[in-house]
Design a protein around this nucleic acid. Structure first.
Lengths: 204, 204
DNA sequence: TCCCAAAGTCACCGTCCAGTGACAAGCTAT
DNA sequence: ATAGCTTGTCACTGGACGGTGACTTTGGGA
């Protein structure tokens, strides 16, 4: 064989990603990884001690979330002039991005069942992304004092995450069809409606 | 032993519930169920053919969600006079109820990974509950024509479900502490803020 | 009373899993 | 060239799993 330790390690890490994306974390065992990588499983133990350590290494490859900079992008090109419009833009970008990240989705599913090195890492980075985004928004627009914008964001983000995760397994939720583009368009429009709540001045 | 077929069947079904609530669906195998029920596993096959059929029987015991009637309860005792206030009440009741239903939570986790007899049943009943609630609300208050109230509800419900599911495994999300009462109070207050979006009349 | 079907018990199969010990092949520095 | 370390291969263990065949026990109807 190639007899190259680094290459073998890379093949193992790549196999982890491929298996995660294709078959989910439930297929993610030492045997399956070795099979997928075309490598003897004993090498996994030699190079990564054990499975948790391997997952940790895989997690440190990173790039499971956008950074705030990537999320915002070219700030001047965004047509948003108020807190609610900005939240709308960022939430929709977040959702569309998450829909592309099959590995991240899989780790999020995992996180719902148990904590491990991978999910810890992901949760930490996600929280940082969320807090950074809130900080960014708060610098542009002071948050209304009578509203808990972080908590409201938490609900909205959680909702989007859940809908994205669920759409892979079940195509309808509350009568909305997530296998069609129009279903997601309804969700995006609903986000725009919901974020107006942060702009609400509260006279009836 | 007791030599009572119906009692044995009941013990098996009870063991399914106990295992689900305590250890989650990943421990839910034929061997574990038999062990928990104190029954030979061969009886599971005799009385329930196989595991899917057993799960189906367990699912048909029902009572994994409130009905609309239970959710609304004594209508006259609710101090809500508008669509947003009603949604606030119902969403918070829904969330508090879900927090008590550990088995339902577990099936919801399961649903995110794969479909089976149990998750199908649960999803169907949940959708019906959601749609019935929306119908109930729409009879009391006509939905604003420029807002997609069902889609907005879907996001909010999804968000609450995700936060409840996640709180069992990880105590913080976006800097909010879900191990404390005050964290959940923030969420409940945020729901009240968010539902105002359905009442928004859209002049700036 | 006894007999037979229902209820329950026991031992087993093949398959997958994580993990390990012993060994073969190949590269490199002396 | 060869000694010694690294890389890779192979075969194995012990345990859990779903599932099955063959048995013993028990209770109620004839």
């Amino acid at each position: 064989m190639a007899r190259d330790k680094e290459e073998t390690k890379a093949k193992i890490l790549a196999a982890v990603g491929k298996l995660l994306a294709e078959s989910g974390f439930r297929q993610l065992g030492v045997n399956a990884i070795a099979r997928e990588a075309g490598v003897d499983k004993v090498l996994i133990y030699r190079y990564f001690e054990n499975l948790p350590t391997l997952l940790q290494a895989f997690g440190q490859e990173g790039n499971y979330w956008l950074t705030v900079e990537e999320l915002v992008g070219d700030e001047s090109s965004i047509q948003a002039e108020s807190l609610d419009q900005w939240m709308d833009v960022l939430l929709i970008r977040f959702m569309r991005d998450l829909q592309q990240r099959t590995i991240t989705q899989e780790i999020l599913r995992w996180e719902l069942l148990e904590g491990n090195e991978l999910t810890q890492e992901l949760a930490q980075v996600r929280d940082r992304l969320g807090m950074d985004s809130l900080k960014f928004l708060n610098q542009k627009f002071a948050f209304p004092p009578d509203k808990d914008v972080p908590a409201m964001s938490a609900i909205l983000i959680a909702g989007l995450v859940y809908l994205v995760l669920r759409s892979k397994v079940n195509s309808t939720f509350l009568g909305i069809d997530f296998s069609s583009v129009s279903g997601w368009q309804r969700i995006e429009a609903a986000i725009a409606s919901l974020v107006q709540a942060v702009a609400d001045t509260d006279e009836p």
